[in-house]
Simulated scan of single mutants.
Amino acid sequence: MQESYKAIKSFLSFILLSLGIIFIDILFSLNFIKEKSIQFIYPITYASQNLSNEIKDFVEQLTETKKIYKEYVSLSEQNSQLKAQESLLQDLETENKLLKESLKVKSDIDYDKVLAKVIGREESNTLGYIIINKGSKDDVKVGMPVVLDNRLLGKVEEVFTSYSRVRLINSSNSNIPTKILGDLSNKSLSFLVGGYGLTMNVTKLDQDAVVEKGDFVITSGQGGTFPQNLLIGEVTEVVSKVETMLYQEAKVKPVVDFSNLQTVFVLLKTEF
């Protein structure tokens, strides 16, 4: 009986010892797992935190960029408005100057005339020729001047029954007797020639003629093709005198926007 008791006691001790060893082993295993888990998870956590901070910084920068962009758009719109106002003021100043100069021109264009509408422009040279809705049935003839107020636009070149073709003064075929407004010496008698609808030049100006930037060019009336004192354009540049040149030349800017013509007048006369 006593031996059986010792055997049971030994067995229980063995069981407890085994359980203790197993428990200790489990603890060590858990610590190992925990340590390994920490070693594995820490870099991920660190990277995630850095990524989170970077995303936060990016969002803040993006928000700031949007704010700056909105301010830029607002400033750009304000700048565009200021430029538009400046351009309008310049246009008004030019028109005011032109009006003042026009008042100085006493052009007698009290002739019979017919109002015409611009119905087309030639595709080959949109600024050199226009088509108007008046023709032979309206008493329009070849050679008749075409004007807008006291400004010369061109001359009728071809006439059909219900429409006509008008050669503008900036056409390459133009050759109009001109002079400088205000010149009483007749030294500024010259000729205006066009440049394929792009430019206009005054040629054969006497070397002694006083011509300056800003002067206005008008018709001289010589040759009887056009009435005298019709406004043509404004001098933008004078070619410097050169000993080898017999005449001066000047570049001229039209006083009319040929690309935006809507209505014109045809003077029903071919000789003046």
Rank of each mutant, 00 (worst) to 15 (best):
D183M: 03
L168K: 07
G195F: 02
R165C: 02
S174N: 10
I176Q: 03
P177E: 07
K187P: 02
F191R: 13
S190C: 05
S162G: 11
E158K: 14
G195M: 06
D208L: 03
I176N: 07
L198W: 01
F160I: 00
L189N: 09
G194K: 07
L181G: 01
N175V: 11
M200V: 02
K179N: 09
Y196I: 01
L192H: 04
I169F: 14
P177I: 10
P177Q: 10
F160Y: 13
T161I: 13
N201A: 14
S188Y: 01
G197D: 08
L198S: 04
S174R: 06
L192W: 05
T161R: 13
G195D: 09
K204G: 01
V159G: 01
S164V: 04
I180P: 02
G194V: 05
P177H: 10
K204W: 04
Q207A: 01
G195L: 04
G194E: 03
K179W: 02
D206F: 02
K179I: 05
V159D: 02
S188C: 09
R165G: 01
S185P: 10
F191I: 07
I180C: 06
T161M: 11
N173T: 11
D208H: 01
N170T: 15
D206S: 13
L184I: 14
V166Y: 03
K187S: 11
S188M: 09
Q207P: 08
D183E: 03
Q207I: 04
N186F: 10
Y163F: 11
G197E: 00
L181S: 05
S171I: 01
G197P: 00
I180Y: 02
D183C: 05
N201F: 12
K187I: 10
N186W: 04
S188L: 04
S162L: 12
R165D: 07
L184Y: 09
P177D: 07
T203K: 13
I176E: 07
E158L: 15
K179S: 09
G197Y: 00
L205T: 01
G195C: 02
T161K: 15
F160T: 00
S188D: 08
F160K: 08
K179V: 04
V202N: 13
N173W: 07
K187G: 04
S185L: 14
E158C: 09
L198Q: 14
G195Q: 08
D208E: 13
F191K: 12
N186P: 00
F160A: 06
N173D: 12
S162N: 15
T178C: 12
A209L: 10
S190A: 09
S188K: 05
V159Q: 06
A209C: 04
I180F: 05
N170S: 15
L205N: 06
L184E: 15
S162A: 12
I180A: 04
V193T: 14
G182D: 12
I180R: 02
F191Q: 11
L189R: 06
R167K: 13
L192R: 05
L192M: 13
T199S: 15
Y196S: 13
S188P: 08
I169Q: 14
V159A: 00
L189D: 09
V166K: 02
T199E: 13
A209S: 12
Y163C: 00
S188Q: 04
N201G: 12
Q207R: 08
D208A: 08
N173P: 00
K179P: 07
V202F: 09
S162D: 15
K204Y: 11
S164H: 05
N186M: 00
G195P: 07
T203Y: 09
